[in-house]
Design a protein around this nucleic acid. Structure first.
Lengths: 150, 150
DNA sequence: GCTTAATAGTTGATTTTGTAACTAACAAGA
DNA sequence: TCTTGTTAGTTACAAAATCAACTATTAAGC
């Protein structure tokens, strides 16, 4: 069933409204990758994001992860707990400031990260292949600006 | 704090990964509008989406809304309940098929829809103004394809 | 040093979502 | 008509997100 099956009583088009469109595109394009990390490792979205941050940057505190990924500290805290329970990461209390915990991936966590990273790269390539290289580059640039991480 | 403050141990760039980028852009670009419908009418995301569908298309069943907006029927059901409790919509049992309910906005619901629609249009224009007209047109087109509603 | 404020992170209560099972109504075939 | 299957929508229970309050530690002003 497509949009054309319906007669509009109103000129407003939801499918031109950027926040709606962005959310729909985000949901749709995340589905496949979500199934992988969820089915294979029982991870949630916040958990793979934390895992990836540690995989990419090596050692971070919960606060740093929260700032960089715009995730609330309670969500980070719970994600860290789950990843620790699965032995994907280890905590080390900072000597300089004993409130702080330095987080790093364990060898297991690192290998999980590497597997998921490979899948992410493949999947990203698949999405990018829907468009020309130039179009995709422009899309990424625009999305970074919209996400305010540009 | 920007990305450059961190040294990467890994070549993978989260800020190039389309599903991540789309989600971040979607969250960021929805925030302002979300505050309006939430603060002003205590509505949730699913609720404004249902409201807008009825405002645009005039009369739909819960199932039709779910199909068009890709919202699960339990979420639609609960959103319809809340909108009905606030007297924003009315249900009418279908004569032809007594399982079905035809949903329409009440005059109150319609005026709320019209107000939010105006705000949405303004806000969309503000987002679009971050780019050239051509760029924005390309963005919308690409997002529709990614969202599989092209 | 002592008080007050700020920060890192956790926990608990409430709300919202997700999954599955459910009721009610229709449809199709023997 | 009497299964059997399907569809519309709701409800119950479990999982997760949100928000506020909390502990522990550090920093700042006096």
């Amino acid at each position: 069933m497509t949009q054309d099956d319906y007669t509009k009583k109103d000129d407003f088009d939801l499918l031109d409204f950027l926040p709606y469109l962005l959310n729909r595109a985000a949901e749709e394009s995340s589905l496949e990758f979500q199934n992988v990390y969820n089915d294979r490792y029982g991870m949630l979205r916040t958990e793979w994001r934390v895992l990836f941050h540690l995989g990419i940057y090596g050692e971070l505190t919960a606060t740093e992860i929260g700032e960089r990924a715009k995730i609330h500290k309670t969500k980070v805290s719970r994600a860290v707990n789950k990843l620790e329970a699965r032995r994907f990461l280890a905590r080390a209390r900072s000597e300089a400031d004993r409130r702080v915990e330095q987080l790093t991936l364990t060898p297991i966590g690192l290998s999980v990260y590497r597997e998921l990273r490979g899948i992410a790269q493949q999947y990203d390539a698949k999405l990018a292949a829907m468009f020309s290289a130039e179009e995709t580059a422009v899309l990424r640039k625009m999305l970074r600006r919209l996400a305010d991480i540009g």
